[in-house]
């Protein structure tokens, strides 16, 4: 059923039963999609659905994804892509399903209908063992770091290495300390998570997400609860580490370039960090494209949201 839907849209072509990534291209003027069931066309009048090309293959792609929790319809026919090798942002007002998107990418949630593709492979169709294997491609920084409360900082960061690799203690120590030093926590290795501030927990979560050198790194609201200066510093750290990882991936000739995805509603972070921006509202993408094009968008909703003004289509409703 799902395969039929793909082939009708021509979004994903499968050869020998395997899906392949495609390159994002400018909308070839298909008919404008209708509103989701139960919604008025008026509600989606600012959704231009325009996708400006990134010129890169998609690391992650949502295809007509629907997800509801009881009466709350969160994703309502979402089509969205995260281009490979870029720092992408999913921007949107609070409560539009940004974190839900992240959970779909790593298979913590499954769509009610539609598909989520990671490097061309359908996540909802994966059997459990393959899913756990696929998740090793991901690093995820949770809002509060999600450090294990029963372990100190060093053990938290070393945990994925101990579970998934055969590395010896010395090598693990070297990798963990390199990552801890990168995020400025080298001196806190023996401290427990409850002894750390919110910002430190986020940075520790960042270090833990990095140790397995993931292909795709997801950040769930990294700026929540941080002051503007620390938010800016964290943004710089994200960019710096992305640059390093890209160089390393090129040197090692890895199959996929590292893709970062930051979910936030903080416009300043978006301006500083993003290469590519997806603006999400009411469960669909309003408009998506490289940051410079999005920041110059003529769409009144995008302009209002990216400039943080109170006047415009977005209201308290």
């Amino acid at each position: 059923m799902r395969d039929d839907a793909h082939s009708q849209r021509g979004d994903v072509k499968r050869t020998d039963g395997k899906a392949v990534s495609r390159v994002s291209v400018v909308d070839e003027s298909p008919p404008r999609p209708g509103p989701p069931e139960g919604a008025a066309d008026e509600e989606y009048r600012w959704h231009s659905y325009a996708v400006h090309p990134s010129g890169r293959p998609d690391a992650v792609r949502f295809v007509d994804t629907y997800k509801s929790f009881g009466r709350s319809h969160v994703l309502r026919g979402l089509n969205m892509a995260l281009p490979e090798g870029m720092v992408s942002m999913i921007l949107g007002p609070s409560g539009t399903g940004k974190s839900v998107c992240i959970k779909h990418m790593v298979g913590l949630l499954y769509p009610d209908s539609g598909d989520v593709l990671v490097h061309g492979r359908s996540v909802p169709d994966m059997p459990d063992d393959e899913l756990f294997e696929m998740r090793k491609k991901f690093g995820l920084l949770f809002q509060d770091g999600a450090l294990f409360g029963s372990m100190n900082l060093f053990d938290n960061v070393a945990f994925p290495l101990r579970q998934h690799t055969e590395k010896g203690d010395d090598e693990i120590e070297e990798i963990v300390m390199r990552r801890l030093n990168e995020v400025g926590l080298g001196d806190s290795r023996t401290r427990m998570p409850n002894e750390l501030s919110g910002g430190m927990r986020k940075r520790a979560g960042f270090a833990r997400a990095l140790v397995l050198e993931p292909d795709i790194l997801l950040f769930d609201e990294p700026d929540s609860g941080l002051d503007p200066v620390r938010t800016a510093l964290l943004g710089e750290l994200i960019l710096e580490i992305h640059r390093e990882m890209i160089e390393e991936a090129k040197r090692k000739q890895r199959e996929h370039l590292p893709t970062f995805c930051v979910v936030t509603h903080d416009i300043m972070s978006a301006r500083r960090v993003a290469d590519y921006i997806n603006v999400l509202w009411k469960g669909r993408i309003v408009e998506a494209g490289p940051a410079e094009e999005m920041l110059g968008s003529e769409n009144p909703f995008i302009r209002q949201f990216l400039s943080g003004e109170s006047q415009g289509p977005l209201t308290m409703d």
């Binding site: 913590l108 756990f132 294997e133 696929m134 998740r135 509060d144 999600a146 294990f148 579970q163 397995l212």
Partner: peptide, 18 residues
């Protein structure tokens, strides 16, 4: 329960650990 509400179980799953 406290691991669940502080996303620690999700973090485990994302690391590829059931």
């Amino acid at each position: 329960g406290s691991m669940r509400i502080s996303d620690e179980i999700d973090a485990l799953e994302v690391m590829g650990i059931s």
